[in-house]
């Protein structure tokens, strides 16, 4: 079975159709994330948004990125976010007031930034850009990653380790409330004096 050269009736290329579909899905779900009243639904919409983005990556000829997108964002980060949502929900359920009182100003600013970037992008000639998309083969990426970019790779792995430790440390529940109330004075004495330029010391009572 083979598809027609173009989309039936419309006469578009299939790529264009897919692009429109994914683009629409991306923006639609993205909007649902930020305006959704229920935070859990926002999280679920975010997963859909990430999925649409993975589709766009495939369309751009970057299947490895698309796979990473699915694994990292949909598989890891979204789950993390959903867990956090569940850990922080008040017993009273979703809050009535979703938006800040500055939401209208935020909307204007966001709209302004979007229009600004869009106008600039549309007004730029992009002389190096070609019309044909060049797919990036996975072997090539692997060679680059483990040969030219091996040092950044290792740095990122250290960063992830630090993030894991930091996350565990921050989210860990203190065992005894006494330990939380550390007297300020001895602590300051034990620690080396902060540099005078820091200035936070003056602010602390």
């Amino acid at each position: 079975m083979s598809l027609p050269e173009t989309v039936p009736f419309l006469g578009w290329a299939w790529d264009d159709l897919l692009f429109l579909f994914f683009a629409g899905a991306l923006l639609g779900t993205g909007l649902m994330v930020v305006i959704g009243r229920n935070i859990i639904r926002s999280g679920l919409w975010m997963i859909c948004c990430f999925g649409a983005l993975a589709g766009l990556y495939v369309l751009l000829g970057a299947p490895l990125i698309a796979a990473a997108q699915v694994l990292i964002y949909i598989g890891a980060i979204s789950v993390l976010v959903l867990f956090a949502v569940m850990l922080t929900q008040s017993k009273s359920g979703p809050v009535g007031l979703v938006f800040h009182h500055q939401a209208w100003a935020g909307a204007l600013a966001a709209l302004g930034i979007g229009i600004l970037v869009a106008v600039v992008v549309a007004g730029t000639a992009w002389p190096l850009a070609e019309t044909a998309r060049t797919p990036s083969p996975t072997e090539e990426l692997a060679l680059l990653l483990f040969r030219d970019y091996v040092l950044p790779l290792e740095v990122v792995s250290v960063l992830l380790l630090a993030a894991v430790i930091g996350g565990v440390f921050l989210a860990k529940r203190e065992r005894e409330p006494e330990e939380t109330i550390v007297p300020a004075e001895p602590a300051r004495e034990r620690m080396p004096a902060p540099a005078p330029a820091v200035g936070t010391r003056e602010l602390t009572p």
Binding site: V33, V34, V81, Q102, A118
Partner: peptide, 22 residues
């Protein structure tokens, strides 16, 4: 342009939502 629009949506969410996770 698609990227700019998505970025604008994210900006709006960051500026407007009250929920930290949002």
């Amino acid at each position: 342009i698609l990227s700019a629009l998505l970025f604008a949506i994210g900006t709006f969410g960051f500026l407007a939502r009250r929920n930290a996770i949002a």
